[in-house]
Simulated scan of single mutants.
Amino acid sequence: MGPVGCAFLLSLLLGSFLSSFQKKTLQSVCGRPVHSGRVVGGKDAAAMRWPWQVSLKFSNFHICGGSLISDRWIVTAAHCLQPTWIPFLYTVWLGSIHINNLGEGVIHHVSRMVIHPTYNNASGDIALLRLFTRVTYSSSILPICLSNVKKKQLIVPGSCWVTGWGKLREGDADNPTTLQEAEVPIIEHQKCENIYNPLAPFLPQAQPVIEETMVCAGDLNKGKDTCQGDSGGPLACHIDGIWILIGLSSWGTGCGTSFPGVYTNVTYYQKWIMSVISRAEVLGANNLTYLTSYSLLYCFLWLYWDPPVPLGLTFYQDSRKCS
């Protein structure tokens, strides 16, 4: 990207910043895709079926999935991010099921990364991304709902859906270009613990492998599961007529094996999500200042710096935790 491209980028972002806010409320649009009817063992998804699905990119490389939860916020897995890196170098791509066809989708730059303070490997594996500019809703771009925190207990159905551009099989060299979808059974918490920790019944005082902050899902018989590159993507459940974000693809042993996938329990962290978003709105940070400084810094880096390969492309090759 040369100086002319950088100038165009800055003017484009400034123009987007000055655009008007969305008129539709979040509650009236979330979890209601227009279309109603590979993740390992999955199939190609239909256009507009999962309009909240995003691809998290670093230096134009897909590293993880994520979900749009409002016109300004994305939720993904904490392990997808490097907190020491500049947020603006991350982008989210949304609006199309074809990951290589940028003409169909929309790109937004990240202005802020908020990683859960308890994150430690698999625990607390959740992060929020604030976008520089607001997303314009359409039939192919809509947020997914979060559960109603006022309810004492959310009744999760027996099976939910996972989506992503992760590998179709463990060890594959390439990722699919079309978004994959798969319906996977929800696995009871204690059963999942027994699978990952067979000694659990004999060691009741031991620290559990599957914590209360996690949800397990996967079709162990048909090999339907998430894999490398699906991390941070949604585990979505159809409840009371709307789609609700229940989990984020986090970790697991192998892909489509006898071990289920383990997901971050979004419901558990929902109060934290709402508090982060609320504080950001109340503070009313000067986005124009951030936009200008980060845009110029971004252009400088593109011109003079050869960025390293993100860890998400090379790390944990024996786990689904990164692409």
Rank of each mutant, 00 (worst) to 15 (best):
D44G: 03
N194F: 14
Q190M: 14
P176R: 07
H109K: 12
A200D: 08
V75G: 10
T178A: 03
W85V: 04
W251Y: 12
P198S: 11
I115V: 13
S111E: 15
V114P: 08
K191P: 06
D230G: 02
D219P: 15
Q22H: 08
V209E: 12
L283F: 13
P176G: 00
P117T: 14
S70L: 08
D225Q: 01
V54W: 05
Q22T: 09
F202C: 03
W73C: 06
V106S: 12
A206P: 01
L56K: 08
P201V: 12
S55C: 02
I239F: 07
D240K: 15
W161A: 03
P204E: 03
M48D: 11
L154F: 06
S36L: 13
P157Q: 09
A46W: 08
L245N: 02
G66A: 07
K23M: 09
C322A: 15
A122Y: 13
V114L: 09
W50S: 00
S140I: 08
Y196D: 10
L245Y: 05
N101T: 06
T292L: 14
L154C: 08
L301F: 09
Q53G: 01
W305S: 11
C64I: 00
T213C: 07
D230S: 02
E183H: 10
V29I: 15
F58C: 01
K222T: 02
I126E: 12
T314G: 02
L26H: 11
G261Q: 00
I97W: 04
I187E: 02
S59W: 12
V156P: 05
E170Y: 01
D306K: 15
K167I: 00
R49Q: 07
P201G: 07
P204C: 05
Y298F: 13
Q228E: 13
T177V: 07
P208A: 04
L14T: 07
V92P: 04
V149D: 10
D172K: 09
D172C: 02
S159E: 04
P260Y: 03
Y269F: 15
S139M: 11
V262S: 00
A217Y: 03
Q270M: 12
V162I: 10
Y137H: 08
G218N: 02
K24V: 14
S28G: 06
W161C: 03
I63N: 06
V184T: 04
K150I: 08
G223T: 02
H109E: 14
T84A: 11
G232Y: 01
